[in-house]
Design a protein around this nucleic acid. Structure first.
Length: 652
RNA sequence: GCCGACAUAGCUCAGCUGGUAGAGCAACUGAUUCGUAAUCAGUAGGUCCCGUGUUCGAUUCACGGUGUCGGCUCCA
């Protein structure tokens, strides 16, 4: 019998008879321990079932419950098991798809009646029973016709649609997986049997459109998660709890940062502490950009719709714009004809108008206009949520007008500013470089130059980045930055976009050294993204315990007894005069309870003042978290605040 | 916008099948004058989200609306 060679991760090689199932090979040639622990295997680059026969020379890696990819596989297993249970418990329910996702898995079902939380409990229990039954996952192949007949016979319209699509793409045979008496069409791989899954927890049920298209029927998506053992599941649930505690929607009002009201859905009220916070973000960004060649401008909030017609937004994004009704317009007309103005949803066109106010020289370039005006976008009601998705917001928005030859240096400079800002907050980030999409404007030579400039700028920064082929905007390539917060969650904050279209649309031009007119290239860029969203991320990143330079209240002076009030107030006044954000707590409460409140409000320093401090002109600061710095002269505390209170990226 | 859930005191939440609401914390008043995460006592606090309906009677049931939450779609 012919044999083939498998190369193991340690580099050793083993001969095996051709056609031997992997599981056999692992048991016989590596060890029964690993055979028992194995969940899936990687043959060369592909994940495969352990039942797969070995047909050719390959590299082999056996994945066990130590592997993240194996976890994804059993989560997919769990989705299958859940679907089988749901169809048994709720006859008539149709199945669609059910993949593993970042945190677990889901399965989309079609059923008229909604699943209730009680249903989820029932399903979860049944799923875990099914896991305990240790049913093997059995793989089989059938022809396309058989597959269609099979699912048509079951009345599974959605499955039939998927199968037909795959057949249309040229597939002749399809893979099925069966566990117990339940069968699904699926590419796999799956683990050997249900007991590999460990433990399943169902989390919630949500609506989802069939194939993600709002014109299609609404399905019910059941989200769940699976782990190899209970301990890991509990750790995960704890992590969800921790994230909940940090939720900016809860902490924001609690810390006096912001609130919402039903009279203005999607628009924040910035409370005193929040306004201070906002102003710190805004002021430090202003200092930073002004020190780096930007010019701040302010433009109207309300614009004639002709501006949006010129920019191209009126045709495509009118749905999301707040229109202003002309009071004298004819009520019989459509809304489009009755509105001639809208609140601005973005700053770019108004910056373009400033650029175009007069003839520009190449000597002036790059010109950098910075604005943090209020913007309005009429987002669909169902999408609103906290500060991350709002209708009214402000951006640290800038548009840079420059020659193509300046793009590389400019992008490099922007990334440098961004790095300074994100480093200050302890946010790590990675870049994604998006190149020309299929639908695009401009010739290949233009795109070659544009992508080349962006890429070389990125490479010059030395930051890691990944290529996203074809994800660019139709008017130019872009770089997206994704930051990772203290809980490991990723947020897409900003993009640097190259725009070759705006120059045309707004007939922008500058006179070059050749005394001829040229179109400038435009760069759209923001570092925070929006102040609202950035605030939300920072609140959750720091769990509300901001560093001294960012804290709305940097220190609170606590009198030990009421007779220390006047000294507390004097001290507070002195610190305020020096520009620090300080307040006094001279309520008739015990020191312990005042300390507790300062701690709950996450104020960086609680300064205790009593008889000793009043006599010596000192304070006894206690750091957030409990560290007692003991009595120190006020001047020393001033030095401390001064050092910690400085914005790490303010100015130059 | 779509699917589902939720909305009770400032906050966190009780309130079984319909009979006009309760706790803790916060607030207020008084006592207490205190040294690093909650001093004690008392008082007050409600359009049970809004509207309509069913009912002798609605916080509770039905319908409509608003907002919020979990998702989908969207995010120039």
């Amino acid at each position: 019998m012919a044999s083939v060679t498998l190369t193991l991760p340690d580099g050793s090689t083993k001969e095996v008879a051709k056609g031997t199932p992997l599981s056999e090979f692992i048991r016989a040639s590596i060890g029964p321990g690993l055979a028992k622990a194995a969940i899936v295997a990687r043959l060369d680059e592909t994940l495969v079932d352990l039942s797969t026969p070995v047909e050719r020379d390959a590299k082999l890696e056996v994945l066990t419950n130590k592997s993240r990819e194996a976890l994804d596989v059993v989560r997919h297993d769990a989705a299958h098991v859940m679907a089988s249970v749901v169809q048994r418990l709720y006859p008539g329910t149709q199945v669609t798809i059910g993949p593993a996702v970042e945190e677990g898995f889901y399965y989309d079902f079609f059923r008229e009646q909604p699943f209730t939380p009680a249903d989820l409990e029932t399903i979860e229990k049944a799923v875990n029973e099914e896991i305990a039954r240790d049913l093997p996952f059995v793989r089989s192949e059938i022809s396309a016709d058989e597959a269609i007949a099979l699912f048509e016979g079951k009345g599974e319209k959605f499955k039939v649609e998927i199968v037909r699509d795959i057949v249309a793409k040229g597939a002749k045979t399809l893979t099925l997986y069966t566990h117990g008496d339940w069968v699904d069409f699926c590419l796999g791989p799956h683990s050997p049997s249900t007991s590999k899954i460990g433990v399943v927890k169902l989390l919630n049920v949500a609506g989802a459109y069939w194939r993600g298209n709002s014109a299609n029927p609404m399905l019910q998506r059941i989200y769940g998660t699976a782990f190899f053992d209970k301990k890991a599941l509990e750790a995960h649930l704890k992590q969800i709890e921790e994230a909940k505690k940090r939720d900016h929607r809860r902490l924001g009002p609690q810390l006096g940062l912001f609130m919402f009201h039903e009279f203005a859905p999607g628009a924040a009220f910035w409370l005193p502490n929040g306004t201070t916070f906002f102003n710190i973000l805004q002021g430090s960004m202003r200092e930073l950009v002004l020190a780096n060649g930007y010019q701040e401008v302010k433009t109207p909030l309300l614009f004639d719709k002709r501006l949006w017609e010129r920019s191209g937004h009126w045709g495509k994004y009118r749905e999301n714009m707040f229109l202003v009704l002309d009071s004298e317009s004819d009520p019989k007309l459509g809304i489009d004809e009755r509105c001639s103005q809208s609140l601005k949803p973005m700053n770019c066109p108004s910056h373009h108008l400033i650029f175009g106010m007069r003839k520009r020289s190449y000597r002036e370039l790059p010109i950098r206009f910075y604005t943090s005006d209020v913007l309005h976008r009429n987002e669909a009601s169902g999408t609103l949520g906290g500060l991350t998705r709002v209708r009214q917001f402000q951006q640290d928005d800038a548009h840079i007008y420059l020659m193509e030859s300046q793009v590389k240096d400019e992008v490099f400079a922007i990334v440098g500013l961004m790095k300074r800002v994100y480093d200050a907050f302890g946010l790590t980030f990675n870049a994604r470089f998006s190149t020309r999409p299929a639908m695009r404007l401009g010739g290949d030579d233009l795109w070659d130059r544009a992508e080349g400039a962006l890429r070389s700028a990125l490479e010059a920064t030395g930051l890691p980045w990944e290529l996203c082929k074809g994800d660019g905007a139709f008017y130019g390539p872009k770089i997206d930055f994704e930051v990772t917060d203290s809980l490991g969650r990723k947020w897409q904050l900003c993009t640097i976009q190259l725009d070759y279209l705006a120059g045309e649309r707004f007939e922008m031009k500058y006179t070059g050294s050749d005394n001829a007119d040229h179109r400038p290239v435009v760069i759209h860029r923001a570092i925070y993204g929006s102040f609202e969203r950035f605030t939300a991320i920072l609140v959750e990143h720091f769990a509300g315990a901001f560093p001294t330079w960012l804290a709305p209240v940097q220190a609170r002076i606590l009198g030990v007894a009421e007779r220390h009030s006047s000294y507390a107030r004097e001290t507070c006044a002195k610190l305020r005069a020096l520009g620090f954000r300080v307040e006094v707590d001279d309520r008739n409460e015990t020191l312990g309870s005042k300390i507790r409140d300062a701690q709950l409000e996450k104020i960086p320093y609680a300064c205790i003042v009593g008889d000793n401090e009043a006599a010596q002109g000192s304070v006894s600061p206690r750091r957030f978290g409990g560290e007692d710095l003991k009595a120190m002269p006020l001047e020393r505390f001033v030095q401390l605040l001064d050092a910690e209170g400085r914005v790490p990226y303010g100015g130059c």
